[in-house]
Amino acid sequence: MADSSTPTPPPAAAAQQQQVKTGSPNDFLKGVIGKQVNVRLNSGIDYRGTLSCLDGYMNIALEQTCEYVDGVMKNNYGDAFIRGNNVMYITALE
């Protein structure tokens, strides 16, 4: 009689599967409040700073904000407000 159980994945595949985090975008955004984030705008400009707060329209308030154009820091703003319709994505830096 043949064993019908599924074979165990190789260790590399198992490790890769463990790195995938599940959860909603809302859970992610709640989890990064107070942490360093990178906000990419539709124009391709990046803003890096501490996420202070955001609302349902994805309007974002950042503290200690730096502006990066093509990977080069151009300005240092301190506090900044980004209108949500300009946001392409948000990534956590920590």
Rank of each mutant, 00 (worst) to 15 (best):
M1T: 13
D3G: 14
S5F: 09
T6A: 11
T6H: 05
P9C: 05
P11F: 02
A13P: 01
A14G: 00
A15V: 06
Q16Y: 00
Q17I: 00
Q19C: 00
K21G: 00
T22E: 04
G23R: 11
G23M: 05
S24R: 04
S24T: 06
P25G: 09
N26V: 08
N26C: 01
N26Q: 12
F28L: 12
F28S: 09
L29I: 12
K30C: 03
G31T: 08
V32Y: 07
V32R: 15
V32H: 11
I33D: 08
I33L: 15
I33K: 15
K35P: 07
Q36M: 11
V37K: 10
N38F: 01
N38P: 04
N38G: 15
N38D: 11
V39Y: 03
R40F: 00
S43H: 07
S43Y: 05
G44Y: 06
I45D: 06
D46A: 14
Y47C: 06
Y47V: 09
R48V: 10
T50I: 12
T50P: 06
L51Q: 06
L51H: 04
L51M: 09
L51K: 06
Y57I: 03
N59L: 08
I60V: 12
I60Y: 04
I60D: 05
A61C: 03
E63Y: 01
T65C: 11
T65S: 08
T65W: 03
E67K: 13
Y68T: 02
Y68H: 05
V69L: 04
D70Y: 03
G71E: 03
G71Y: 02
G71H: 04
M73A: 12
M73D: 02
M73S: 10
K74F: 01
K74L: 07
K74W: 00
N76K: 13
Y77S: 14
G78M: 12
A80R: 13
A80T: 14
I82N: 13
I82A: 13
R83Y: 06
R83G: 07
N86C: 09
V87M: 05
Y89R: 15
Y89G: 12
Y89M: 14
Y89E: 11
Y89K: 14
Y89Q: 12
I90C: 04
T91E: 10
A92M: 05
A92C: 04
L93M: 09
L93T: 02
E94V: 02
